[in-house]
């Protein structure tokens, strides 16, 4: 257990954490803003990766490839949205259906279960190899950080618009939203589209980073994303009140997740157990607010004239 090995692995962990940070921001939109646990992301992450790699292998520019990957993810989100709203399927199940369907779609996109891309032959935006000994503007950490800042700025703007406010209201109180003339089904579909677009973009970057797209690359993406959201909120929730900062907190949460993961690996844990560990950690963190409410709340007696105000 050489501590230097751990330090050497850190930049890679940060880069991966940042790329997954985009996924986590996407998951934040559905999970926190829309109050939907969207499992389609496990499939759309891979869709993004698959589309991006196949487009690049066919000679497309990296930016065009990422754009199309994002659009493909949006289409996946649209499918989940239609399952959920138009067909009345519970959100969780709608996501699972999309995820399962995407398995076939992803195989068809790639033609086989794994497609590699050579960093020396193609002009990649991010890569394992662009972490050390490259100009800072080519450094993956720098590139992804810029992308995240741009995305957060765009989302901050969007959720401040009339349409974005309608989306937030839908997640907060759908009865009230409909009473105020908001088409809550539309809002949900739109939220799922945006979220899955971000996740697919993240998948496109991830596949470039690791040098291949794999049919299993999205497995457990929802759990990693939720972990990042929860870690981000637990650590930065008290200081990051503003919406943009909250999103930044989620990205930081994702980085922390990968750093912790790296430490755990460095400590020599069996890597086969990592997913089990992630699942348990997320389960416990999701339980904390529930436990808090159930076991640690003391009945409070409010003083003043409003004590019976129905609140």
């Amino acid at each position: 257990m050489n501590i230097l090995n751990l330090f050497a692995a850190m930049p890679g962990a940060v880069a991966q954490g940042l790329i997954w940070g985009i996924t986590s921001i996407g998951i934040y939109i559905t999970f926190r803003i829309l109050d939907i646990a969207d499992l389609s992301v496990d499939g759309s992450l891979c869709t993004g990766g698959a589309v991006c790699i196949m487009m690049m292998l066919s000679g497309q520019n990296v930016f065009v490839s990422l754009l199309v990957a994002t659009l493909a993810g949006m289409a996946a989100g649209l499918a989940t949205g239609i399952f959920h709203t138009f067909m009345g399927i519970p959100a969780i199940l709608a996501g699972i259906l999309t995820q399962l369907g995407l398995y076939s779609v992803n195989l068809k996109i790639m033609g086989k279960s794994n497609q590699a891309i050579n960093v020396d032959k193609y002009d990649l935006l991010v890569s394992l190899r662009y972490i050390k000994n490259v100009a800072f503007y080519k450094n993956t950490i720098f590139v992804v950080a810029i992308i995240i800042v741009l995305l957060i700025a765009a989302l901050y703007w969007f959720f401040g618009t009339e349409l974005g406010c309608a989306l937030r209201a839908t997640g907060c109180n759908s009865n009230m939203s409909r009473a105020q003339g908001i088409n809550t089904n539309m809002s949900k579909v739109l939220g799922l589209v945006i979220s899955n677009g971000l996740v697919a973009l993240s998948g496109g970057l991830l596949s470039q980073y690791q040098g291949f797209a794999d049919i299993n690359m999205g497995r457990g993406a929802i759990v990693i994303g939720l972990a990042a959201v929860i870690i981000g909120e637990a650590i930065f929730g008290k200081i990051f009140r503003n919406f943009a900062l909250k999103l930044l907190g989620v990205a930081f949460g994702s980085i922390l997740y990968y750093i912790v993961l790296q430490v755990v690996i460095w400590m020599g844990i069996d890597t086969d157990l990592l997913k089990l560990l992630s699942a348990l950690v997320v389960a416990v963190f999701l339980a904390i607010p529930y436990w808090k409410g159930k076991y640690f709340t003391k009945p409070t007696i409010k003083k003043g004239e409003n004590q019976n105000a129905g609140n």
């Binding site: 969007f158 618009t161 009339e162 349409l163 974005g164 406010c165 309608a166 209201a169 105020q180 003339g181």
Partner: peptide
């Protein structure tokens, strides 16, 4: 303010203009 702004747009098309 955001709640009132939502109500202000009741029955109108919600665009990408500022929410309030």
């Amino acid at each position: 303010d955001e709640n009132l702004a939502l109500a202000k747009r009741r029955g109108k098309f919600r665009s990408l203009k500022g929410g309030t």
